[in-house]
Design a protein around this nucleic acid. Structure first.
Lengths: 194, 194
DNA sequence: GTCTATATGACGATAGAC
DNA sequence: GTCTATCGTCATATAGAC
């Protein structure tokens, strides 16, 4: 079959699933809902994906890769670990505004409950990348010496909680409005500068 | 019927449900599982609770009240907002070690998916109480002037992420080992002291 | 490859005996 | 109040026509 058409139909399923999973949750979304939202029959859907779980897994894997690549690019364009981390937070904030469902699914959702295979979010590639930054920053003396998990959370924890607040509809203004204020608190907490 | 026996059986159901909900998630737990784990029949279970959701709601409400009361006590025994917040984090860390399921259900779970009525966690009594502390701390000049949601997350965000890390099994040592290091980062970020 | 119609099984909840 | 047995519903997944 036409390969690009195949791709297009898969995308349509994934888009519909992402929307539904984030709006109502995985368990409150039926295969029929996805089928209906993607304007496709159940039969077709099962032609493209083995089952409902496999849709969720593909979705997660795609979004995870996407974030990982963004982090790699940030890494290439910045030298100090301060800048890398800062740009990572900016990227996450901007993308939460641009594609809220994607960020919600990636950061907010409890995947383990419906993807038994999947490792915890803290063992995902993007998180590991960010952790190496923190450890490098500590080795280079930019970031105070302390347990690297603590440092990691001190730098990114409050930012991620901001994403949660935004997703839950508590923050009315776009996340990017809070970026600098939020970042300065985080960095002040771990920086070796007085 | 003997009122204390009634209470005792309800507790047994709630305990079993909490254990299962946190281990497998709400949707992966069947009423039969709860019935079996609480060594009770389905009939009895439905005698004590209207339905499965009502078990989840009662559980959440109990734990929320419990945390709220602990915060009220902390508030009474400390004067500075620094000390209140610090003790709150200590309480959360200690209780995550003491009763991990309770803290997991309270802080980590996405309640909205199975309790449509429930407000978001950020609108719960404990969170609102902590927010008033932060705002008071800002009014009194202890905490830097900034958006109160940002300040809130700067103070508690990384601590809550630490709880997540611990629940996910990433941290091997008890949370209390990380308390001071974690707190110092948070407080340095928002404090008005140089 | 795509569709409709249907099989299969599980879950929440109830009925009714004791 | 407590139990066992069962009902009704609905979701996932498949079968089979086109």
């Amino acid at each position: 079959m036409n390969n690009s058409k195949k791709k297009e139909r898969q995308e349509r399923i994934l888009d519909a699933a992402l929307k539904l999973f984030t709006e109502r949750g995985y368990f409150n979304t039926t295969v029929n809902d996805i089928q209906f939202a993607s304007k496709m029959s159940v039969g077709s859907l099962y032609n493209y994906f083995e089952n409902k779980e496999s849709i969720a897994v593909t979705l997660y894997s795609n979004l995870e890769n996407c974030l990982y690549e963004a982090l790699c690019e940030i890494e290439q364009q910045n030298v100090s670990m301060h800048d890398c981390c800062h740009e990572a937070v900016r990227h996450i904030f901007e993308n939460t505004e641009r594609t809220p469902s994607a960020m919600q699914y990636l950061l907010y959702t409890k995947h383990r409950e419906f993807m038994p295979v999947e490792k915890t979010a803290f063992a995902s590639l993007p998180f590991l990348k960010m952790k190496t930054w923190v450890e490098q920053g500590q080795a280079m003396g930019e970031i105070r010496a302390m347990d690297s998990n603590v440092a990691m959370n001190a730098i990114f924890g409050s930012a991620i909680r901001m994403v949660f607040l935004r997703i839950d509809g508590i923050l009315e203004d776009p996340l990017t409005d809070y970026l600098e204020e939020c970042w300065q608190c985080s960095w002040r907490g771990v920086s070796t500068d007085e």
